[in-house]
């Protein structure tokens, strides 16, 4: 069932990403191993994993869209709804909590005017309280998209947000 190698002419992804996917499925002993990276890269390009992406990825791997959804819904980084251009992920797990992570999250809520898993009306920022991101010795830490910002204070956080806003407005 999984041995079919269907490659349709059209793709919903950029030529670069499509080429990357073509290669990715050949790196592993089974095509399906490429599933999770593909979903993540598709999300990076399109903001979230769209229905069309699910269909195309299922087809590229040779599994059913249900299989893809089963896997996709398991992983917390993958999402099926859009978020802001800059997704602010504030860690509040123990090491960060002890150094004010919770407070930092509250601060971000106020500053951005949105709550957990919400997006600002202009679509620039979205906010999420996340579990440990592996920056415990440099707590409190925040990830904006994939960029780490650590040893944060409220002021430092504001500066970080301002910087992204400027970038967005460019």
């Amino acid at each position: 069932m999984t041995t079919e190698a269907p490659m349709e002419a059209q793709t919903i992804f950029s030529p670069e990403l499509a080429a990357r996917f073509d290669k990715l499925v050949t790196l592993y002993p089974v095509r399906r191993s490429a599933l999770i990276p593909m979903l993540l890269y598709a999300q990076d390009e399109q903001g979230y994993v769209t229905d069309a992406a699910i269909r195309e990825i299922a087809q590229r791997i040779g599994i059913t869209p249900l299989d893809v959804r089963n896997v996709l819904s398991y992983y917390s980084l993958l999402r099926t709804k859009p978020v802001g251009k800059y997704h602010v992920q504030v860690c509040t797990n123990i090491s960060c909590m002890l150094r004010g992570g919770q407070k930092l999250f509250e601060h971000c809520k106020q500053r951005l005017g949105v709550g957990h898993k919400e997006t600002t009306p202009d679509g620039i920022f979205s906010l999420e309280e996340v579990e440990c991101i592996g920056a415990c010795s440099w707590a409190p830490a925040v990830q904006v998209n994939y960029d780490f910002h650590d040893n944060l204070t409220a002021d430092a956080m504001d500066a970080v947000l301002d910087q992204y806003r400027k970038q967005a407005e460019k």
Binding site: T64, P65, L66, D67, R69, N70, S73, Y74
Partner: peptide, 18 residues
């Protein structure tokens, strides 16, 4: 037939139709 799957995780885990 493989029409049923498991989605989400933890206490949100749910049986889902294809």
């Amino acid at each position: 037939v493989w029409a049923l799957g498991v989605q989400n995780r933890g206490v949100s885990s749910v049986i889902a139709p294809n």
